[in-house]
């Protein structure tokens, strides 16, 4: 089988503008059948726009995209029979019960009443919603609503599943729960495209990752491939007395040929130190000792995707000003 035939999702030179905003500026990628693709990008990068084109909700200005060989524009009906979508905002009817929501979605996928009932029951059970099944969904927690929304998109067993920021707004527990559900789906052979702003999420779930920014793919590969682009390990420490950060940075500057990344708020310093292993650690301890700065959490670690973002774009994966910085920041690992 050649690569095209085995591709569940195939995208070539996709462009989409909204007036003057170029949401997608020539995106290319393919997702092999049965794999998970992580689409990573800050707010406004074009993730949702890409998902909406692929799920036949939006016509592209130019370029082509196909799902299991069916063109999303010319064969939209066939595409809709293959896909499932859980959008960035949940699309459940909060006045109705969880069970009723699933029934409606199942019926709209033209499953028989008996299939709808048995599949609905299975999904409620699997997503830990059985107890709440007959309560209106407005009494559900955010995490439960998300799970119901995902369950609703799984009726009819879609071959290709699109998840637009499936964990945004969930607490750590809800997030882990969602991760394990997504992993399980992937194990059963569902092709999944998931978008996320969280680097650790893509790292955790995706076989391959594309990083998009301002409508363009700026990097792609496996998590390890992307990390290799950073070139070696990252040395990280926190300066306890924040007024001494500059001294500390100067002291360790010689350990790297690139500039240190400093978070002035927390006193955290990160430095790319190549492949020198623990030798870099020893040198860092000595260097910091010469300037008598107290540091905490000195450690050498494998690069995170945040470091990747930095290496590729020259800046951190920040939101483009559309939302308060607090949302993304807590999750970032730099």
């Amino acid at each position: 089988m050649n690569e095209r035939a085995a591709a569940a999702i195939s995208v070539q030179q996709l462009h989409k503008s909204f007036g003057k905003v170029h949401a997608l500026r020539g995106i290319d990628f393919t997702v092999p059948r049965g794999t998970v693709m992580g689409v990573l990008g800050p707010n406004g990068a074009g993730k949702t726009t890409a998902v909406r084109v692929l799920t036949t909700l939006l016509l592209p200005d130019s370029g082509t995209a196909s799902i299991e060989g069916h063109d999303v524009v010319r064969e939209a009906a066939a595409v809709r029979r293959l896909i499932g979508l859980a959008g960035q905002a949940t699309a459940i009817q909060i006045e109705l019960t969880g069970r009723e929501n699933l029934e409606i979605m199942g019926r709209l996928r033209h499953l028989s009443w008996s299939d709808v009932r048995t599949r609905g029951q299975e999904l409620l059970d699997r997503f830990d919603l059985l107890e709440a099944a007959d309560r209106p969904a407005k009494t559900y927690s955010g995490g439960m609503q998300r799970r119901l929304d995902l369950a609703a998109s799984l009726l009819g067993d879609p071959a290709v599943l699109f998840l637009d920021e499936p964990t945004t707004g969930l607490d750590p527990h809800g997030r882990l729960q969602m991760w394990s559900i997504i992993r399980e789906l992937a194990q059963h052979g569902t092709t999944i495209l998931l978008t996320t702003q969280y680097l650790d999420e893509a790292d955790e779930l995706a076989n391959t990752i594309i990083v998009i920014e301002r409508g363009q793919v700026i990097a792609q590969g496996t998590s390890d491939e992307l990390k290799d682009r950073v070139g070696g390990d990252v040395l990280e420490f926190t300066v306890v007395d924040k007024s001494r950060v500059d001294d500390a940075v100067r002291a360790v500057a010689g350990l790297s040929d690139t500039d240190a990344i400093v978070d002035a708020e927390t006193g955290r310093v990160a430095l790319r130190v190549g492949h020198r292993g623990s030798q870099a650690l020893v040198q860092a301890v000595r260097a910091l000792d010469t300037v008598h700065t107290e540091t905490a959490g000195l450690a050498l670690r494998r690069p995170s995707l945040d470091d990747v973002f930095l290496a590729v774009t020259g800046h951190a994966a920040e939101a483009d000003g559309e939302q308060p910085p607090s949302r993304g920041r807590g999750r970032r690992r730099m």
Binding site: A77, H110, S153
Partner: peptide, 17 residues
Amino acid sequence: QAGVIDRLRSLPMARSA
């Protein structure tokens, strides 16, 4: 606004429904 129509349009259901 809430994306419900988006979701419905992604289903293999009749456009008129």
